[in-house]
């Protein structure tokens, strides 16, 4: 199969993720969309690795996974604590960081 198709899929997934981040309010969904984007990137990395015949892309994909895992831990914790204090998981409600 033509590896370029994987790239198309990665681009599609990334776009879906980005759109989700922009239009959804629920923090969990936004969070999952971010994960989706990260995985789209991973897919692209692995594809490129395959296409160019070297392993750099795969290594970076592993790094991404580690970072993503760490992010999930921190991010979910924040979301949970936000939900506890405000009884809402909407990202628009948490706008206290502005000046």
């Amino acid at each position: 199969m033509n590896p370029v198709n994987y790239l198309y899929l990665a681009a599609l997934l990334f776009t879906i993720g980005a759109t989700g981040v922009l239009i959804r309010r629920n923090a969990i969904v936004v969070f999952m969309c971010i994960e989706l984007m990260l995985n789209a990137c991973n897919l692209a990395f692995v594809t490129f690795s395959r296409m160019h015949g070297n392993l750099d892309g795969q290594i970076i994909a592993f790094f991404t996974m580690v970072v993503a895992a760490a992010e999930v831990v921190v991010g979910l914790a924040i979301i949970v604590s936000l939900f506890r204090t405000r009884h809402s998981a909407s990202v628009d409600d948490a706008s206290l960081m502005k000046l």
């Binding site: 981040v21 922009l22 239009i23 990202v91 628009d92 948490a94 706008s95 960081m97």
Partner: peptide
């Protein structure tokens, strides 16, 4: 511009 809405930052 710094309105505190995460999604507008994302945009």
């Amino acid at each position: 511009i710094q309105n505190g809405f995460a999604r507008s930052y994302a945009v």
